[in-house]
Write a protein that binds this DNA or RNA. Structure first.
Length: 829
RNA sequence: GCGAAAGUGGCGGAAAUGGUAGACGCGCUGGAUUUAGGAUCCAGUCCUUCGCCGGGUGGGGGUUCGAGUCCCCCCUUUCGCACCA
């Protein structure tokens, strides 16, 4: 740890240097994006939740984005690199309650503190475009988008069984329930029957699913997670009839080919169809009791039941294929929300149905032959046969081969009008209303006569009122604010009440990237021209934990806004990069309760922001989690202080170097030319690595070059040329340092407005090259040859190498392989 | 159970497209310098060996002149989904 009082240890005066350049950037507005870019690059980092000061995770994420932004600037792009605050929501509210503050006060204070820190870090954000989702001029447009969805029937109210967190005192979206527990506080989530607001994201399930196939700028892992979450499933709807009443009893199945094997059906306890059954008296009590019991269980309890159980209703259905009578059961393993809430059970060919049938002595009927053409004996089966195969015991379908069985049965249902091909999704509609204070008010008025009436656009925003008591108590605190709640109906003028709920904060983050494009627009959510100019996001950087939340929601919003004509793009972000976490030295997550938080501010004050970020970059690629240790930064400070920064001492600012043109190579000695080659290899390497965000090897390449660079042995021209190139190459990674060095070489302001170095292709191929020589694939020697030498010369040379010769003795060469400029392999026997 | 990613020295991690495995750094070991500490410099550091040779990228097979990289099987770890009919 550098001792602040000990001047000898300060390797360069990072404090004044960093302050100087931050100020300079700010004054010259170098990071301000133009309205109309020529060559655009929209770089988006996930905006921050202001729950305190920013931490090492933010620091890592945002310095990564910063390096990319600066690199793109140097490659001639107009870079849009905005920032803002995801300021509404439960965490801010909970934190504020704990401290006895108002959420607004708490949030705004945190924003200020965090903003100051980020400015101190010198991130290249365009602060002119800063937004905060808790401010009326932002959430006004969240309300506006909500109303557009309402108009299209995509925002709707529904009485439904919903997830309720008893600790947060609010409902939660499916995406916020992890293993039946609240993602915030791990409380077991209860099911409550409530009327709530939903967004019909399911209308977009197919498009959300299909676009994933073309999104090759996204990590495969995220795409796979989203695919699974959307859960597309191809199958068939088949309409059975209730025996007696003849009422329809539709089911969804992916295995219509097993329909002749149906021996019972399972109905979810919550399924509405149950009301249509006339359950015989002798079964009624047991069924009612089972349903009551099932409803009291939590999701986890229901899922945990290893043994599937259920109860027979005494009712039957008719199989439309063969007219057979099917027992109807109620079973709580059936999900009311998927398909129709009714499952056709085929015990011979579905493992769960098999176990259920064995338990309750229900017949098992084999209707699919095995691969070997065997018809299994149902009495002797120990498990279901779930493979596809030829149909058997299936009436007119007998003999239909496995690959045709499903299409043929589907075709039949359509011909007979007893069903149809159908695609189901696991994705559910998004529950967005919250019974909490700190969020965007839902812009709807409930009128006893007119029902749910949208607030007219001209009355937006619906301002979140200041309240005394915002503690959660199971219904929205806004419900107890008469001035807010009591209004007249916009349609009929009669007494009406505002909706008291607020929106899920993920609404705010579903479109923030659009507001950045036109953040001060008072008449529109954003201008279409701005959207056309900047979209899609060229690079999005953020955590993988948002895979099934935010990263689906913002895709959904984009598609919706395209459909109403505001956007041209189908997808918001062309490329996505997931950064890794920063843990403490023992690999534990940094947290205030653990007391192991390393502050970016402390690092900046003791070592400088450039050293801190270089240390972080050097440790590992940015997508790999790292364990922070102070020696990272200590060692980086040594490298910069001893090796890198002193480079400018070797620069002679009287010697003019023209960086735009080829260096005069003819003047160089052989050793100097070798160094020139190494420089160009380094340029090539670093450019390649920066493009892949491999900043660890960027710094390694710089170190390696400096290990070989001996300025005192080289002519001054070459030294100057090399130093300038190196400063540019390292600028994205160490911006203040680079500016300072650039200036002290007499190059003026700013290094970020110079062109990124391009390697000299002539210098990549040297006059002589080293070729590796293998015998039977094993390295046996190296030869130095003229780079122009032909294959024959090289092979002759290789065979005459002393080391190689010993391995050739007494053997005959059966094959000679030459890989140009790299290696020779002699195959001997 | 299903899906995805990944297994390389004491450690973090390098090896673009199959072509010199272990770059760069940490740590460690010797040495130099220094009143001392810190710092700095030089040398060494995958295993085995004085050296050559040999072995080596989780394990086992395969393709190839040549495999960390491609294919098959297995093991382990991490992450995501977990009754989806």
């Amino acid at each position: 740890m550098a001792n602040q009082g000990d001047e000898k240890k300060i390797v360069y005066d990072f404090r004044s240097i960093e302050e100087k350049w931050r100020k300079r950037w700010d004054e010259s507005r170098i990071f301000q994006a133009p309205e109309k870019p020529d060559k655009k690059f929209y770089l988006l980092v996930m905006f921050a939740y202001p729950s305190g000061d920013i931490h090492m995770g933010h620091f890592r994420n945002y310095t990564l984005g910063d390096a990319v932004a600066r690199f793109k600037m140097m490659n001639g792009y107009d870079v849009l690199h905005p920032f803002g605050w995801d300021a509404f929501g439960l965490p801010a509210e909970n934190a504020a309650i704990k401290r006895g503050l108002h959420p607004n006060e708490w949030t705004l204070k945190n924003i200020q503190v965090s903003r100051d820190t980020l400015k101190k870090v010198g991130i290249s954000f365009d602060w002119n475009r800063e937004i905060a989702s808790c401010l009326p001029d932002y959430y006004r447009w969240s309300q506006w988008i909500f109303l557009r969805m309402f108009e299209k029937g995509l925002a709707y109210r529904k009485q439904a069984k919903v997830n309720w967190c008893p600790t947060c005192n609010t409902v939660l979206a499916n995406e916020q329930v992890i293993n039946g527990l609240c993602e915030r506080d791990d409380s077991p989530v209860e099911q409550r029957e409530l009327e709530q607001w939903f967004l019909k994201i399911t209308d977009y399930a197919e498009r959300l699913n299909n676009s994933l196939d073309t999104m090759d700028g996204w990590p495969d892992s995220i795409r796979a997670i989203q695919k699974e979450w959307i859960g597309r499933s191809e199958g068939c709807e088949i309409v059975f009839k209730i025996d007696g009443s003849g009422e329809d009893l539709p089911i969804f199945t992916t295995r219509p080919d097993t329909v002749y094997g149906v021996t019972f059906m399972s109905i979810a306890p919550e399924a509405e169809i149950l009301g249509k059954l006339s359950i015989p008296d002798e079964y009624k009590a047991a069924v009612d009791e089972y349903i009551e019991k099932a409803k009291r269980k939590t999701e986890v309890e229901r899922a945990a039941g290893e043994d599937k159980d259920g109860v027979f209703t005494g009712c039957y259905a008719i199989n439309p294929f063969d007219g057979s009578k099917i027992q109807l059961w109620v079973a709580d393993y059936v999900l009311a929300g998927y398909g129709t809430g009714v499952v056709m059970a085929v015990p011979a060919h579905d493992q769960r149905d098999f176990e259920f049938a064995r338990k309750y002595d229900i017949p098992i009927k084999v209707v699919i032959k095995t691969k070997d053409g065997v018809v299994l004996n149902s009495d002797k089966m120990t498990e279901a046969y779930t493979e596809y195969g030829e149909m058997v015991n299936s009436g007119e379908f007998d003999g239909t081969p496995g690959n045709k069985a499903i299409p043929e049965t589907i075709k039949y249902t359509e011909k007979k009008g007893i069903g149809k091909a159908q695609i189901n999704y696991r994705l559910r509609d998004w529950l967005i209303s919250r019974q909490r204070y700190w969020g965007t008010p839902i812009p709807v008025i409930h009128c006893p006569k007119c029902g749910a009436v949208p607030v007219p656009d001209k009355d937006l925003p619906v301002i979140l009122p200041e309240v005394e008591n915002y503690l959660p108590k199971g219904r929205s605190p806004l419900a107890d604010v008469p001035e807010f709640i009591n209004v007249s109906c916009p349609t009929c003028g009669g007494d009406a009440k505002r909706d008291a709920d607020t929106m899920d904060t993920f609404i705010c983050s579903s479109w923030y990237f659009l507001r950045y494009l036109d953040p001060r627009n008072e008449s529109e959510v954003f201008s279409k021209d701005a959207a056309k100019a900047w979209l899609p996001i060229d690079q999005y950087i953020g955590g993988a934990e948002h895979a099934v939340g935010h990263l689906i929601y913002f895709r959904f919003f984009t598609k919706f806004l395209k459909d109403i004509g505001l956007l041209d793009v189908e997808e918001p972000a062309a490329r996505l990069y997931n950064h890794g976490m920063v843990n403490d030295e023992k690999g534990h997550k940094m947290s205030k309760t653990r007391g192991n938080v390393v502050s970016p501010i402390g690092l900046i004050e003791n070592y400088g922001g450039d050293i801190a970020r270089m240390a972080m970059f050097f440790k590992a690629p940015p997508n790999v989690p790292i364990d922070w240790t102070d020696d990272l930064v200590i060692n980086m400070a040594k490298f910069v202080g001893n090796k890198f920064f002193p480079l400018v001492n070797n620069y002679d600012s009287d010697t003019k170097v023209d960086l735009k043109y080829y260096f005069n190579k003819d003047e160089l000695t052989i050793d100097e030319f070798r160094m020139y080659v190494r420089l160009n290899q380094t340029i090539k390497q670093i450019t390649h690595d920066v493009e892949l965000f491999q900043f660890n090897t960027v710094i390694a390449a710089l170190m390696k070059f400096l290990n070989e660079f001996k300025p005192e042995q080289l002519n001054q021209n070459l030294v100057n040329y090399s130093v300038l190139k190196l400063i540019q190459l390292i600028a994205p990674v160490a911006p203040c340092l680079a500016e300072e060095m650039w200036e002290s070489c007499g190059q003026g302001y700013s290094v970020f407005q110079t062109d990124w170095p391009v390697f000299d292709p002539d210098a990549i191929v040297a006059d002589t090259i080293t070729v590796a020589v293998q015998v039977n694939g094993k390295l046996r020697g190296e030869i130095e040859v003229d780079s122009e030498a032909d294959q024959e010369t090289i092979l002759t040379e290789a065979k005459s190498n002393d080391k190689v010769k010993t391995h050739l003795e007494g053997k005959s060469i059966v094959k000679e392989i030459y890989i140009k400029g790299r290696l020779v392999n002699l195959v001997v026997k």
